[in-house]
Structures are given as C-alpha cells and as structure tokens.
C-alpha cells in the first residue's frame, strides 16, 4: 500500500498537486499521512473528500492516518470528522 505524505500546507495550490498525484494511484489501496499538516485549507479538505469518494466508488481501501492537531481542528471546525476520510474494504 503506497503511502503519501500530505504537505505542511494543504491549501488550494497544494490540493491541486496532491490531487494530480492521487489520480495516478486511483484503483490502488492508499494511505495518506496527515501528520505534517500545519495548515489545512477548506479546498484541501474538499479534495480529500473527493478522493475518499473516488476510492469508495472504486471499492478500494483508502485511509488518512495520523492527523496532526491542526488538521484535526480544521476538520472539526468545518463540521466533519476524521472518520469520514476512510474507505474500508470488506474482504
């Protein structure tokens, strides 16, 4: 399962970059490491939601792990929960 390290600042521009990267991995199980994030913008969250949705529709495992405190706070502020960024595959 390839790991992708999410950048410190996940703003609009970074979200675009990560999305390009992730699109390459579509169809493969993936784990994203959110431990380095210091600033998580709404667009970044949106992109992660879109990714989760993509993996879910493909039925492939998707996980964002090790949320940094700042990232967790942003998620909560926006009215979301970190558990919403997972796709578990029953095998």
């Amino acid at each position: 399962m390839p790991d992708i390290q999410l950048p410190e600042i996940l703003d609009q521009r970074a979200a675009q970059k990560v999305a390009t990267l992730l699109i390459e991995e579509i169809g493969k199980p993936i784990k994203l490491d959110a431990s380095a994030i210091t600033r998580l913008g709404t667009i970044g969250v949106e992109m992660l939601l879109a990714a989760q949705r993509q993996w879910q529709s493909d039925g492939v495992a998707f996980e964002v792990c090790d949320w940094s405190a700042n990232a967790e706070k942003a998620i909560a502020t926006l009215g979301l929960s970190t558990t919403q960024f997972q796709v578990e595959v029953q095998s």
Binding site: Q12, I23, I26, E46, M47, A50, Q54, L78, G79, L80
Partner: peptide
C-alpha cells in the same frame, strides 16, 4: 456546524477552482 458536501464529486472530476 452542518456541512453540505453532497456536491463533492469523485476525485477524477474534482476541480480545485470550483466550490462544492
């Protein structure tokens, strides 16, 4: 806070410049 994220598309169709 209630978020409405129903409009968020699959990553393939996602555009950073758009709002969902």
């Amino acid at each position: 806070v209630t978020i409405d994220h129903a409009l968020v598309p699959l990553l393939r169709d996602w555009r950073a410049e758009e709002t969902y």
